[in-house]
Design a protein around this nucleic acid. Structure first.
Lengths: 344, 344
DNA sequence: TTGTATGCGTTATCAG
DNA sequence: CTGATAACGCATACAA
């Protein structure tokens, strides 16, 4: 009574065998329409639903995808994840989100979970690219993997954002406005976005014939909470920047705090450029000029790449998809108040 | 070679039987230390990891919890989910997040997934409480359920936030400042938070001897995107409100848009109160006065309730936990510029 | 204390 | 076209 009906119950009720029931339900062909009807009637009557666990056992596929990301509360990640989930779900996969908090132990634990639970694949947008253990664990998991904005390990399919181009756009704009000392706040250079953004920053500066002051490039240790002290130090130094590019969603909150604490006016005292079309950047006053990109597309592209692998499509070499950025000018930038630091 | 080792391989390598291996790995007792060593050595040598799917098959528990929520991109939800996941993970459960986008079809699909995948329980913070089909599906799923901020179906454990108290705090404050016409923007009254907030709003007004103008209570159809037109209409009417309480995270973005479009000054032209300690409310200028509550605690409490049920703790009646709100005064409220609408 | 055998619910193979 | 049966990998009741 309380027990869920099994395929055997259906077979009995339909007066046939389990094999036939299974075939009617899955195989499609090889089933007389009479049998088909009998089976379907029994299924409806008993409210039978196949047991996915038993199917997984038999088929060696759990139809489950894991997604490793550092932090679900980051609105940028949320949109990517949503889009990826939607796509995968349409293909019958269940999407398991795992937040690693950028903790290596947790990453390893997640990867082990993928193996032990026989999950079918993973989308990874967490982790420092230099973590050897994570990389080998990934390889040992022996499942299809798609990386988002990571280029290590190189053997996997990946979806990239053209952060370098975005940084160049931002810098050219600022340089055009007359800025010469621009601070760059980044996530770690141990991940692709940080590296690419720093590269773009340097490239634009070099193009304009401005020397790169390494002091102005500030990779932030913790990506989640901006180290408030760091920017304070910068602003109190002898040659404070006239503009700041904040290429991390969460860091922006920290910068905003500094701005209001020190009663700085934007853009008169300081120009600001950030990333992402978030509520914070759009409804700040003034609204903040940003580099943005299509987050949903990023998620979809990753899912599509994974689905291809899941469907057994073999390629010579890993696929890489690169998405462009867009530069949205709002009200947070103006020419510098006074000329930049003295130069010879 | 490429095949994963099974318990049988371990038994062979250890020169014992599958039963013993299984006992050493799980049972704990009944294992001579010599056997224990042999088995562990074999496990290490082969890199054996138990197959969770097979275990689920046998034990009829997948150690998996589903979490239904409307929208992962909402930063308030994100924090709740994070806290719940952390707790559940510690107990060995995997947490499957499913976004329903407030779509009944999707909710039903998710619940069906829980059944077919033999998941062990669910945390629900989605759905209109009046959806009959969802409620019956929930009951038929026949698994432990914990509701977050929903009181229907009444048979389940639930964690509540004292939204009524929060609304009262906000209204008393505004009334104390001299406001008489306060608009209330709400999610649907078909969910508990909407109902409670409206009740608190009315109660505070009644206490102060101010008549409730039903025109000022505006439940928003779509909770994700604020209907911009609605607030516009309100502000252009004959008796515009002098203050607005925006009790929905996402709606606030819409209100902010109106504010900047119409060049309204806050708090001089309009007082504003919202919810949640988000980047948007904290770093707006002026920072916005809000009603907040402990999101992480909400998630943890829900997880704890669920774990209790999972562990087979039986209670006479469903457990209900209620969390208080906190009123944080920032700079978005001031006395009304001119007296409220004329009164007899 | 340890080994053997059974069954969990499916799908797929193989005769009929 | 259909029915019986053998795995899938594990935990456990029971026998030794």
């Amino acid at each position: 009574m309380t027990r869920r009906p099994t395929i055997r119950d259906v077979a009995k009720a339909a007066g046939t065998s389990v094999g036939s029931v299974s075939r009617v339900l899955n195989g499609g062909p090889y089933a007389s329409s009479e049998l088909h009807n009998k089976v379907m009637r029994a299924v409806a009557k008993l409210g039978y639903e196949p047991d996915v666990v038993a199917q997984s056992m038999r088929l060696k596929s759990t139809k489950t995808i894991a997604c490793l990301l550092a932090d679900i509360a980051n609105p940028l990640y949320a949109e990517i994840v949503n889009a990826a989930e939607e796509r995968l779900q349409k293909e019958g996969y269940v999407f398991v989100l795992s937040t690693t908090r950028n903790d290596e132990e947790r990453e390893l634990a997640m990867i082990s979970m993928v193996r032990r639970r026989r999950m079918d694949g993973m989308i990874v947008m967490a982790s420092d690219e230099t973590r050897k253990d994570v990389n080998t664990a990934l390889a040992e998991a022996a499942v299809p993997v798609v990386l988002i904005d990571r280029e290590v390990p190189a053997k996997y399919d990946a979806v990239y954002v053209d952060h370098r181009g975005g940084a160049i756009d931002a810098m050219r704009y600022l340089i055009g406005l007359g800025h010469k000392r621009v601070a760059l706040l980044l996530p770690s250079e141990h991940v692709r976005p940080g590296r690419e953004r720093a590269a773009g920053y340097r490239q634009a500066l070099t193009e304009a014939g401005i020397a790169v002051d390494p002091e102005l490039i500030r990779p932030q240790k913790t990506s989640v909470h901006f180290s408030y002290a760091d920017i304070e130090k910068l602003l109190q130094g002898p040659h404070p920047p006239t503009a700041i590019i904040v290429l991390g969603t969460r860091m922006l909150a920290g910068v905003m705090k500094t701005v209001s604490t020190r009663n700085l006016r934007i853009p008169e005292d300081l120009s600001l450029i950030s990333i992402g079309d978030t509520d914070l950047t759009r409804f700040a006053s003034p609204p903040i000029t940003v580099v943005r990109w299509d987050l949903a597309e990023l998620g979809r592209a990753a899912a599509d790449l994974l689905i291809e692998q899941l469907n057994g499509v073999k390629r010579e070499r890993p696929q890489h998809i690169s998405l462009p950025t867009e530069f949205i000018i709002r009200g947070s930038c103006a020419p510098p108040k006074k000329p930049g630091a003295k130069r010879p």
